[in-house]
């Protein structure tokens, strides 16, 4: 018996039995089963405690805040001059009328439309290439393409930010040498591409590994059979591999959509390098802005709850669609 937080609790259950040893067991053979019955709950105590403290309670508090507002008494000075009062759905109607937040959602969608197909397309392409037996340098490439995963998003964004700066960028150097036009990567539509590139760079490797793992689980005899039937490598990839890894693709798509709604790091990192990037560019930035820069935690909470609900609705819709898809596939 070691001294871990779980010990005491489990011991009280196991204690008498340990003393009774073999005799107790032979008399009541059902005892060991019953003894283990509370164990899973004890093992779950740390998980559930943390889940309650850092997920359930904060969400509950955010919902509570979202239904309140501050009323200022008199001229608003002194203790008790500001009190929290019930505001019903007032904050929510404000959120829905808030065009800043609406725009931030639209920007996130626009950004996602670039990032998700590019990132997952590349991840699938690289995974298929890795799975080609005759490809050289596959282990090296696999590690290199995965490497950006080890780079913090903010640092990836800072590095790319420098590469976007005309004064230090090798790309501008080359464009200059060849006399080509030099686009402003921090301007208008290019900004979306600049952000998207950072996300694609950082996310492709991880998704590639997920898809590649699924590919390797396919038994090789399927390919043998297909080859005997005259299938080419390309045919095998399109007709066998992609359909089989579809569940992994759906999963990576699902998580990419959620991540897109939460884009925060890239625009935050490039903000100091650009002029005129609104501080509510993405939904998360809009919420941060409201909570801390405008000190409106009530409105910010309502906005956050709306975002969470939107994420849930979107997730369940996607899961429903993918469920139906895979079920039809099986039939």
């Amino acid at each position: 018996m070691t001294s871990a937080p779980l010990k005491g609790s489990v011991l009280t259950e196991a204690g008498p039995l340990a003393d009774g040893t073999g005799t107790a067991q032979s008399v009541r053979p059902s005892r060991p089963r019953r003894r283990g019955r509370s164990a899973p709950y004890w093992f779950l105590v740390p998980t559930l405690t943390l889940f309650a403290a850092f997920t359930v309670v904060p969400i509950g508090y955010a919902i509570w805040l979202s239904l309140h507002k501050v009323r200022v008494k008199g001229i608003g000075l002194g203790k008790g001059a500001r009190e929290q009062v019930w505001n019903g759905l007032g904050n929510y109607t404000d959120v829905l009328k808030d065009s800043e937040f609406g725009h931030s959602i639209l920007r996130a969608f626009g950004y996602g439309l670039i990032v998700i197909p590019t990132m997952l397309g590349l991840a699938l392409l690289f995974a298929l290439m890795l799975d080609t037996p005759k490809a050289r340098s596959a282990p090296f490439a696999r590690l290199m393409i995965f490497l950006p995963y080890a780079v913090p998003g903010i640092i990836a964004a800072l590095m790319w930010g420098f590469l976007y700066l005309p004064d230090v960028s090798p790309f501008y150097y080359l464009l200059d040498k060849f006399g080509l036009p030099q686009p402003d990567l921090f301007d208008g539509g290019n900004l979306y591409l600049s952000f998207a590139n950072i996300a694609v760079w950082g996310g492709t490797g991880f998704n590639m590994i997920v898809i590649y793992t699924a590919l390797r689980a396919i038994p090789p005899d399927i390919y043998e059979a297909a080859r005997i039937d005259g299938a080419t490598d390309l045919g095998i990839a399109l007709k066998i591999k992609i359909p089989i890894v579809m569940p992994s693709l759906v999963l990576t798509f699902f998580f990419s959509v959620i991540a897109t709604l939460q884009v925060f790091t890239e625009p935050m990192a490039l903000k100091p390098l650009t002029n005129g990037l609104p501080s509510s560019w993405s939904p998360l930035m809009a919420i941060y802005d409201k909570a801390f820069l405008q000190s409106d935690i009530y409105g910010a909470s309502a906005t956050a709850v709306v975002l969470a609900l939107a994420t849930f609705v979107l997730s369940f819709t996607l899961l429903r669609i993918s469920d139906r898809y895979t079920r039809e596939d099986r039939a």
């Binding site: 005759k134 490809a135 596959a138 490439a141």
Partner: peptide
């Protein structure tokens, strides 16, 4: 050697290395 997959992988590796090398 399958050249197309090899080339694609090397290009991918280069793309991922550019910012780090820089």
């Amino acid at each position: 050697t399958a050249w197309v997959p090899t080339l694609v992988l090397i290009l991918g590796a280069l793309y991922c290395l550019i910012p780090i090398a820089w």
